Amino acid sequence: MRVLQALFFPPEQPGGVSSMVPFMLDRFNKRGWEMELFSLPKRIRNKGNEEIEFETFDWAVYAGHPVVDKYIQTLKDYTWWTKLRIQRSFDLIHAHHPIAALVMRRVFPDTPLIMTVHSSYEKELILNGKIEENGPEHQFLTSVYRELEERSDQLITVSNSFKRYLADYVQEPERIGVIPNGFDEKRFRPVHHENQVPQLISVCRLVPAKGLDTLLQACAELKRRGHKFVLHLIGDGPIRTELEELAVQLDIYEETIFYGYILHPEDFMPFFDVFVLPSRAESFGSVYAEAALCGLAVVGTQVGGITEQIEHGTNGLLVPVDDVTALAGALEKVIGDPMYRYQLSRIALEKALKSYSMTRVVQQLRNVYRSYRKEV
């Protein structure tokens, strides 16, 4: 059975999806499946010129807005690149981005198409101050979900929380499958270590949606309470300078290290003590599972897929979004009690190995793929 895994970002790009799918593909290929990866190179811009039409709504009423116009042009570019590069047929296509799914249905109308919706682009744009809630760009992006439902043979998402979110925008939400992300266990190896000063780490794109301003304020509160720590921030993004300036204003710049983008943070993440990321939204939150697989205690927020990974007080701690005092209290608890921190991390590791292994994902997807064998 020939299967095409259609990404948007190239595999070498940072992020849960782009880093997960190549490992998944490798597992399938080792079991005798024939799979290929496909994505749009970042350098492809303004090459496509075919007209775009949707079956379930008229996108032209939203034309003229930057986000919409860029989305439509990217659809055209992805179409151009797909027709240029793919010269063979496949028995099944599994898309991991709305643009990839819509293009694949357009170019290969008779091939079964599975679409996994990994995140809510519109929610991220709202939180990052790029579009207005309920504005035209928001309406356009949420209308795409209904189009995906119409065009795909199967919709899948990564958490029950995100399935409930999608329910407002599709006609048959009960048909959406849920397959949480999985991770190659061999990439993550907990390392026994003892740090005299607690080491906190966060890995993410530096954008407002990740709540790093809340984290810096909470760390400033920790310092005022007399706690020693080092905060390691791995990632880059448009608000890096703003965050560095905030760290200076809060008098925690000496305690904070800004690394920028690192390709494989899991290589040294196991040497830290606590992973913390106070996100304002997460469909799944792959990095929390990755941190657990590295043997870290995990602190997150009560949103989205994070709450399906972390049971408060059992395998991690959860705090309300934007609650500096609660976050400082949670961090104080885990850095002040090494035994409690160890217990949280041990149970988190056990759950992650059981629930988020790549083996489990491969088994679940294999069943989905085989259900379409009779149709090809």
Rank of each mutant, 00 (worst) to 15 (best):
K186F: 02
G211D: 01
K186W: 01
I335L: 08
E290M: 10
Q199T: 05
P265W: 08
R164A: 04
V362M: 13
Q249H: 11
F272Q: 03
S283W: 04
A326R: 14
R106T: 08
L296V: 03
G285M: 12
K123S: 11
R31V: 00
I176C: 01
V197H: 02
K163S: 05
T307H: 03
R88P: 11
C294I: 06
M339P: 05
A60Q: 14
I114T: 02
T256W: 00
P265Q: 07
I176G: 07
F275G: 08
Y369V: 09
Y169I: 04
N315I: 06
H138D: 11
V334F: 01
G237A: 10
I131F: 03
G336R: 07
L127N: 02
T314H: 08
D91Y: 06
I93R: 05
K354Q: 13
S345N: 02
I335C: 03
I52F: 07
G316S: 02
Q364C: 03
K47G: 06
L331V: 02
A291W: 09
V324S: 12
A209K: 15
W81M: 05
Y342H: 13
H138S: 10
A101R: 05
Q13G: 04
E53D: 08
A291M: 11
V203Y: 02
E124Y: 11
V170G: 11
K30P: 00
K223E: 06
E266Q: 14
L349A: 10
E255F: 00
S161N: 11
E132L: 14
L365C: 01
D58W: 12
E149T: 05
I262N: 11
F284D: 08
L293Y: 04
P198N: 10
L7M: 12
E194W: 12
P112Q: 09
N49L: 02
A6D: 02
D251M: 02
S119W: 06
P238M: 13
H97R: 12
K76H: 11
E290T: 08
L331T: 03
V230I: 12
Q302P: 02
L293S: 05
A167M: 03
I347W: 15
I262E: 15
F188P: 04
L231P: 04
L4T: 08
L4C: 10
E245H: 10
N29S: 03
A348I: 00
V107K: 14
P320W: 09
